[in-house]
């Protein structure tokens, strides 16, 4: 089982992560999540300009044997979506915290990150 955790990110109980830079949050799914899903074969396109609340379904990820909903860890507006994962969903398996990012969100409630887990708490949560 693989569950690498990256320092400096915030995590949800549903295994999403968010990396905060100023008022910009970059989101994705954790190494544990990609490992549980197995070979990811399809990601539903995230539309630029979408307004999401924390906990809203932002996209779905499909592997050969499972489908998972991805919930936004933060509220805000999608200002950029990662199109490379649409063509190469395997990036999510290979580099979940890097090339496999999903979207950049302009955060409307930055204080929400306080409710999320830090790397060490998340590491314990998915031990």
């Amino acid at each position: 089982m693989s569950n690498k955790v990256l320092e400096g990110l915030f995590y949800t109980k549903n295994d999403e992560w968010v990396k905060v830079e100023d008022d910009l949050g970059t989101i994705g799914i954790s190494d544990y999540a990609q490992d549980q899903l197995g070979d990811i074969v399809y990601v539903e396109e995230i539309k630029k300009g979408t307004i999401v609340n924390q906990g809203d379904i932002i996209t779905t990820v499909e592997s050969v044997k499972a489908v998972a909903e991805v919930y936004s860890p933060i509220s805000g507006e999608v200002i950029e979506a990662n199109h490379t994962i649409i063509d190469e969903p395997s990036h999510i398996n290979g580099d979940p915290y890097g090339k496999g990012w999903f979207a950049k969100i302009k955060m409307s409630k930055p204080e929400e990150t306080k409710e999320l887990m830090n790397a060490s708490d998340y590491g314990d949560y998915r031990k």
């Binding site: 074969v41 399809y42 499909e62 592997s63 050969v64 044997k65 499972a66 489908v67």
Partner: peptide, 12 residues
């Protein structure tokens, strides 16, 4: 394209 099917997705 099995992720559409009932054994994987149940009520969805």
């Amino acid at each position: 394209l099995r992720a559409r099917e009932q054994d994987i997705r149940r009520e969805k």
